[in-house]
Design a protein around this nucleic acid. Structure first.
Lengths: 154, 154
DNA sequence: GCATCATTGATGATGCGTCAACTACCGGTT
DNA sequence: AACCGGTAGTTGACGCATCATCAATGATGC
């Protein structure tokens, strides 16, 4: 019951396999590293980094747009994070409507322990095994692919 | 409330951003392409490709090991695919215990329409925008990273 | 001043993936 | 035969992501 499709050329197959392999392997290792120090998921980490990047919290919608999430996803995730004491919703200081999201001391502590280790993991897995020239090459190639991706999804 | 961590160097940041961008963007485009022709998810596609790669169906555990899934995940997914008429569980031809999974005619038709388009999408997004030398370079870099990943997860 | 509409955000339903039982069945041992 | 340990696979519960929908709060037109 062979499917008769013209598959990729051997170099193409090998490249695709490698890309898929990285795609499948990276999140697991990063997630484990984050789990080991502070019980954070990758998504928690992303949200906390966005929130702690400025001096104060962020508006709900600004937060959602900086991490490129839909509002509903953000809302659900903030509820779960709030239940775990990582963030809180406050009244908007500008008085208007809209939720203002801030990091609790607990969340701040969590991100401050997690961030250095996470960066170290990224370094170890992706940055360090490549020479500076190779890193630049990887950047160029990924950005080329990214361009196609964005052209595909306007 | 700035988190004071030594982040990546600018080239490192740019590389990491590009890698993450590809990682986040690729599945969406591939999933849409598969959805548009046959209502398959990426996971459906992977299972169907594995099943139609040989002349006959596969043993449950062989299927699980070729696509690198846990048994429970495979079991759940096969149940859902069976409910949609894509695969069936049969008695093992060897007589022993164990489930034998085969593709239904409907599943076969689905994969035969989906596969060429999927390959074309991969080509368009990843293979075509790169020259052969660049493709080889991408392979080498990804495989280097893969090595680190596997060293990290024994 | 109020009716209408868009924005902002929350909620419920559904599907997927993981973990931890749980069942069933085969093989060998006593 | 009865027992037992390991293999094969299923099931249930839970967390997360997405989609559709709902409620409340603006802004705008008349």
């Amino acid at each position: 019951m062979k499917v008769k499709t013209r598959w990729l050329t051997p170099p193409g197959q090998r490249a695709w396999r490698a890309v898929v392999g990285v795609h499948q392997g990276l999140p697991g290792v990063l997630a484990r590293a984050l789990q080991d120090c502070g019980n954070l998921s990758i998504t928690d980490y992303v949200v906390l980094v966005a929130l702690t990047d400025g001096p104060d919290g962020l508006h709900f919608q600004d937060l959602a747009s900086t991490v490129q999430w839909e509002w509903s996803r953000m809302s659900h995730h903030l509820r779960r994070m709030a239940k775990r004491g990582l963030v809180t919703r406050e009244e908007c200081p500008k008085g208007g409507r809209g939720a203002h999201v801030v990091v609790t001391p607990g969340g701040c502590a969590a991100i401050e322990t997690a961030a250095p280790r996470h960066v170290a993991t990224v370094r170890r897995l992706v940055i360090d095994p490549l020479s500076p020239e190779e890193l630049d090459m990887l950047t160029v190639l990924c950005e080329r692919i990214l361009g196609r991706l964005e052209a595909d999804r306007p």
